[in-house]
């Protein structure tokens, strides 16, 4: 059976594809440049570590406070005791593993223990840049270093 030539044209790489794919590459490169240079990635003593569970903030303390490890549990009753390195997500404990352990040392963050099908966030390793989150999608946990100092005016 003979292919209709008009239809067959749309299966082959043509000149318009070059334009559209170049547009796509341009979009991606501008996004890359924005995330590399447009976002503050520096970490200093005034930075904070913020941990959220499903959008709710459960931990917000200076990065200089070292935790090795900080255990996040779904245990009922404990409202969270950051002094003793235990956090509880409290109310709806929809969580894969029994615990998620976060290590905060030397101005870096790392998820050391978690339970999820692909172990993406523990494979991500040590993160030393600000505004670069570690995301444990099945556990709804997000760990990120936030540098508030850049948002404030310098003369205050």
């Amino acid at each position: 059976m003979k292919l209709n030539s008009k239809a067959k044209k749309r299966y082959n790489f043509n000149f318009q594809d070059v334009i559209f794919i170049l547009l796509g590459i341009f979009l991606v490169i501008s996004l890359l440049l924005y995330t590399l240079f447009g976002i503050n990635r520096n970490v200093n003593e005034n930075s904070f570590v913020v941990i959220t569970y499903a959008g709710t903030e459960i931990y917000n303390r200076p990065i200089t406070e070292e935790k090795d490890p900080l255990v996040i549990t779904k245990q009922m009753g404990i409202t969270g005791d950051p002094e003793n390195n235990i956090l509880s997500i409290g109310r709806e404990f929809d969580f894969v593993g029994p615990t998620v352990e976060v290590r905060i040392v030397d101005m870096t963050i790392q998820v050391v223990q978690e339970d999820s099908p692909h172990k993406i966030c523990s494979n991500q390793g040590v993160v030393k840049y600000a505004n670069t989150p570690i995301i444990c999608e099945p556990n709804y946990i997000q760990v990120v270093i936030v540098d508030y100092s850049s948002d404030k005016p310098d003369n205050m």
């Binding site: 749309r10 318009q16 794919i21 796509g24 991606v28 959008g55 997000q142 990120v144």
Partner: peptide
Amino acid sequence: RSSIFSASVLGAIFHSIGQVLMYMLISQS
């Protein structure tokens, strides 16, 4: 009049953009 290549490639890029936007909405960050 472009072919399956640009449809697939741009579809894939916008799939990730949509996912990331939705994740921003869900996680509020």
